[in-house]
Structures are given as structure tokens and as C-alpha cells.
């Protein structure tokens, strides 16, 4: 692959998804884009890049971005945020009116495992009827899969306790389908975290884990600020264990004793 081809593809995913693709990641382009290239009978990444530079390449650009978006996900990933949620959600629920929905945002939701894990926690707490989880992702394909709520035998074994499997899933021809009760509390949409998020409304809890790692510092700051705008003053933000807000924003503060758990810094109203 020529340097120009790499630059074309890297600049595309940077503009569309905010993802910074360093030269050390060039090796992954072949793997990730191989299927797409075969589908289009393109012999090389140079040929793909040339097609992307040609006019009328909007659909191809979307497909390339989608193929390069990391979609790894599993149920109850990293465990601890869900244990924390189990402790914090009753407090938030009590602070709201009994009829008020508990709105949780699963940012870059991938195939939906995080959103459904949140719903399982709410069910344990008896709060499922009040739950409204919104999952968004850049990729239409993963959003379609998330909505469908059907997982392979491999997927339902990655992190999901077997009691939860038996309780919340139905077996269908070797696959496992999420129960209608859980699905009723969860909704998925395609969406870009770099776009205006105001139309999503406000949230009591935001999960944005292992997403910021793909962005450069200014983009991280921008996304964190947009999330702060959407989070309730007594809400909680969960980031990935390897992510931080330090040096990126002053609108969140880490919750002592926790890793990757942040509270919004409530700004005083201007005097006058």
C-alpha cells in the first residue's frame, strides 16, 4: 500500500468517525477491509483508495468507516461498572419521581451487549419498567444486530453468568434471543458521537467505554463536553478502565475509590 492510499483511508476515518489511525495500524487495513475489497473486486488498498477519491464515493466511504470501526463487545464487560451501577441506580431512581424514566446512554453500543447488560441489572433491582436505555453506534450493521438481540453460543458465554442466560434468553436454532421484557427497555439508533447529541435528550447515566481511546485529544475533549451537557447533575459517567478525563475536561471528576467512574462537576449558576 502506498503512503497516499494510507493517508486517504486514515483521513476518511478521522473525518467521519474521529478515529486516529496511526501508521502502526496500517497492518489492520488489509484484514478489516479484505471482505469489502473482495466484494468490489478491488485488487489492492491502492485501488480502494483511488475509488474513495473519485466522485460519488459516499456509500463506499460509509462502508470503509464501518469496517474500520472496532465492534468488540461482550456482556458485563469488565464487571465493575455494572456492580457500581447496581449500587447507584436505586439512589438515582429514588431521587426521581416514581413515574419518571431512568435514561441510560450506551455510547458506541456495538452489537448491544452493554445495553442489555444494563437492562439485566435494572431487572435485578426491580427497575426494568422504568428503564430506557438508548444505544447508538456509527455502524448500521451492528445497530441492526443490536436491535435483533440474537447472539451466538460464543457471544452469550463471554461474561454472561449462566443464570442470566437462562433467565433472559430463549434458545432458537442454536442462537440465543434476548427476552421481549429486556428488549422493551432498550432502544438502538445509528448515530455519530461527533455529531450534535442534543436531540438524544438528557441521561441519568452514560456508558462511554473504550471509545475515547480511538480519538485524538481535542476530539476526546469535545465528546466529553457534549456528554457532560447530556448528563444529569447527580448522574454517573462510565469510561473504560484505561481511559481518563484528566487534562481533557474539567466537567467531570473521578469518584474516589472507583476506576473509570466519573461524576459531573456541577457548575454554580452565575450570580446576578
Amino acid at each position: 500500500m502506498s503512503g497516499a492510499a494510507f493517508e486517504t483511508i486514515a483521513s476518511l476515518v478521522r473525518t467521519r468517525a474521529g478515529i486516529v489511525l496511526g501508521a502502526d495500524k496500517a497492518y489492520m487495513l488489509d484484514t478489516r477491509l479484505g471482505g469489502l475489497m473482495r466484494e468490489l473486486s478491488l485488487a489492492s488498498l491502492d485501488a480502494l483508495a483511488a475509488k474513495l477519491r473519485a466522485p460519488g464515493s459516499e456509500r463506499l466511504a460509509a462502508a470503509v468507516t464501518e469496517a474500520l470501526t472496532t465492534n468488540e463487545s461482550f456482556f458485563f464487560r469488565d464487571g465493575k461498572p455494572f456492580e457500581h451501577l447496581k449500587r447507584v441506580l436505586p439512589r438515582i431512581a429514588a431521587a426521581r419521581g416514581p413515574a419518571q424514566k431512568l435514561r441510560i446512554f450506551s455510547a458506541a453500543c456495538s452489537t448491544g451487549q452493554e445495553a442489555y447488560s444494563i437492562a439485566m441489572v435494572a431487572e435485578q433491582l426491580g427497575l426494568l419498567p422504568r428503564l430506557e436505555v438508548l444505544g447508538t453506534d456509527l455502524s448500521q450493521e451492528v445497530v441492526r444486530r443490536a436491535r435483533e438481540g440474537v447472539y451466538s453460543q460464543f457471544e452469550v458465554q463471554r461474561g454472561l453468568p449462566v443464570q442470566m442466560l437462562v433467565k433472559h434468553f430463549k434458545q432458537e436454532a442454536g442462537q440465543w434471543r434476548v427476552s421481549p421484557a429486556l428488549r422493551a427497555g432498550v432502544r438502538f439508533e445509528t448515530g455519530n458521537l461527533l455529531a450534535d447529541l442534543r436531540h438524544l435528550g438528557n441521561f441519568d447515566v452514560i456508558f462511554c467505554r473504550n471509545v475515547l481511546i480511538y480519538f485524538d485529544a481535542p476530539t476526546k475533549s469535545r465528546v466529553l463536553s457534549a456528554l457532560a451537557d447530556r448528563l444529569a447533575p447527580d448522574g454517573v459517567l462510565y469510561l473504560g478502565g484505561a481511559e481518563t478525563v484528566l487534562g481533557l475536561t474539567e466537567r467531570f471528576t473521578i469518584i474516589e475509590g472507583e476506576r473509570g467512574v466519573y461524576a459531573p462537576v456541577v457548575r454554580m449558576a452565575a450570580a446576578g
Binding site: F74, Q153, Q157, V162, G174
Partner: peptide, 30 residues
Amino acid sequence: SDFSRIVTALESGAQEYIMKPFDDEILAGK
């Protein structure tokens, strides 16, 4: 890997259940 088998194992006192084939990641999660 049948649902009814998993239920039987749980009712008989198993704490967890892995459906083969499995890998290190599945085992670690369990």
C-alpha cells in the same frame, strides 16, 4: 447445549455452565 440440559444442571447444583467449544476468554469470563 440444549436449554433444558442447562436448567437440569443448575437445578442439580451446578454454579456455572460452559458449552463446548470454548476458549480461554470464555473460561476466564466464567
